[in-house]
Computed example of a mutant assay.
Amino acid sequence: MIYINPEDKKIKDALDKHSKAIYCLVNKKIYGITYDCENKDHNNDSCLTCKQTSKLRTAVKEDIISFLKINLKNIIVNKPIQLKNRQNIFFEHFILGFNDLELDKYLKCKKKKEDDRNFIEKDIFNRYDSIFTQIKNIFNYDVFTDTSKNYSAYNLSSNLDISTCTYCNRLYTRTVINPNKITRPEFDHWYSKSKYPLLALSFHNLIPSCHVCNSSVKGTIDLSLDEHFHPYIDSEKIINDEIKFSYYNKSLDTYGFSMTHSSSKAKNTIDAFKIKEIYKTHEDEIIDLRKIRDTYSESYLQNLSNLYKGVISEEEIYRLAFGVYLEEAKFEKRPLSKMKKDILIELGIIKNGKE
């Protein structure tokens, strides 16, 4: 997993742009033409998000409108640790007898045909569904992914500017937005949007990731901040110290990855995203690193450093030699940076993070 530093200027700027656009999007859906845009230009003209958004065709309950009037900005910008509590407060207020166990039962019985639901399931469905439907309509993620909109998932990913998958650091997830919106990372909902619809457009709940991690691996797995790392919370030092790549001999000239961890959160994170399993496709990288170690000895980088001393920096030599970044804060810029650094340290080619 790659740490996303919320104090980085580009992340702060992305949060600011996201919060302004989503605030207008949601309010325009609720109030329609009566909403007075908060992001008007110098000509006192409404923003494009407001111009492109129409009022919902179905009415929103007045008490929901009142709740969002007070809480909407917090729902959009709150830190991960506050988000789940924010939704729980909402549903406890609007759904009689709300609790996590009933919520899980609602999600299960929703998949059933009406005639197949028993009495208890019908009761749960009737209490939950109307509120869930209204919230899903208001915080509609599909609208956010519409490429025709002035502000969409493409803009968020471009503003975040994170080059590789946050979860696995295996694949590039760069955004191509000009001249057309061509490709971007998927956004994983840390708290799944099916279970946490109020958080479907919350900034810290939208994690840029590759398709494998978002859809094939994680899906709707219920993650917990107490049991898993979160890229906006757990620092790069914690993540990189507690999760380590290693290797072992499968046969004479073949190798496999192994993972070490120093906490239950680290282990749960490795397991949830199947890091060990998906890295099997990169076992040939170990062969290449071993060849360097066996051919040039542990002094490989030192020899290169002596050769190009005064010409290029040690960090540049490392990047040119192995195609990845040495600094942990730059791991997101190149795929496999975390894995290669861990293996190179184990091979003795770099020591204590340096050559």
Results as ranks from 00 to 15, higher is better:
residue 127 R to A: 02
residue 200 A to E: 10
residue 137 N to V: 00
residue 159 N to R: 13
residue 199 L to Q: 04
residue 112 K to C: 05
residue 123 D to G: 05
residue 121 E to P: 03
residue 176 V to R: 13
residue 148 S to W: 00
residue 144 F to T: 04
residue 197 P to T: 08
residue 183 T to Y: 13
residue 150 N to H: 15
residue 183 T to D: 12
residue 211 H to S: 13
residue 147 T to M: 05
residue 112 K to L: 15
residue 175 T to Q: 13
residue 135 I to Q: 03
residue 198 L to C: 03
residue 103 L to W: 10
residue 201 L to P: 04
residue 118 N to P: 02
residue 154 Y to D: 00
residue 165 C to G: 05
residue 198 L to I: 05
residue 185 P to C: 13
residue 146 D to F: 00
residue 121 E to C: 04
residue 147 T to D: 09
residue 116 D to M: 11
residue 117 R to P: 05
residue 129 D to I: 00
residue 117 R to N: 09
residue 147 T to I: 14
residue 130 S to D: 14
residue 148 S to R: 07
residue 136 K to D: 04
residue 185 P to M: 08
residue 208 P to C: 11
residue 141 Y to V: 03
residue 144 F to V: 05
residue 144 F to Y: 13
residue 144 F to E: 01
residue 209 S to T: 15
residue 158 S to T: 09
residue 213 C to Q: 07
residue 210 C to T: 11
residue 185 P to V: 09
residue 134 Q to I: 05
residue 196 Y to G: 06
residue 164 T to H: 05
residue 170 R to C: 14
residue 172 Y to V: 00
residue 108 K to G: 01
residue 167 Y to T: 03
residue 102 E to H: 11
residue 177 I to N: 03
residue 137 N to A: 02
residue 145 T to N: 10
residue 181 K to R: 14
residue 155 N to A: 01
residue 105 K to N: 15
residue 112 K to V: 04
residue 117 R to E: 08
residue 179 P to C: 11
residue 196 Y to T: 02
residue 155 N to K: 06
residue 152 S to M: 01
residue 139 F to A: 02
residue 148 S to C: 06
residue 197 P to R: 08
residue 215 S to R: 14
residue 143 V to H: 00
residue 155 N to T: 04
residue 135 I to C: 04
residue 108 K to P: 00
residue 184 R to D: 05
residue 207 I to T: 08
residue 108 K to L: 10
residue 140 N to I: 06
residue 158 S to V: 03
residue 173 T to H: 11
residue 189 H to K: 06
residue 179 P to A: 10
residue 119 F to L: 11
residue 105 K to Y: 12
residue 126 N to G: 07
residue 190 W to D: 07
residue 107 L to C: 06
residue 204 H to Y: 15
residue 161 D to S: 15
residue 197 P to M: 08
residue 105 K to P: 10
residue 168 C to I: 08
residue 130 S to Y: 06
residue 168 C to H: 07
residue 183 T to G: 14
residue 103 L to Y: 08
residue 139 F to L: 02
residue 113 K to F: 12
residue 164 T to K: 06
residue 178 N to D: 06
residue 143 V to A: 02
residue 170 R to P: 07
residue 126 N to F: 09
residue 128 Y to F: 15
residue 164 T to W: 03
residue 165 C to L: 07
residue 137 N to G: 06
residue 163 S to G: 01
residue 202 S to I: 06
residue 201 L to C: 07
residue 194 S to A: 15
residue 173 T to R: 10
residue 154 Y to F: 15
residue 174 R to V: 15
residue 185 P to T: 10
residue 121 E to H: 03
residue 103 L to M: 14
residue 180 N to Q: 12
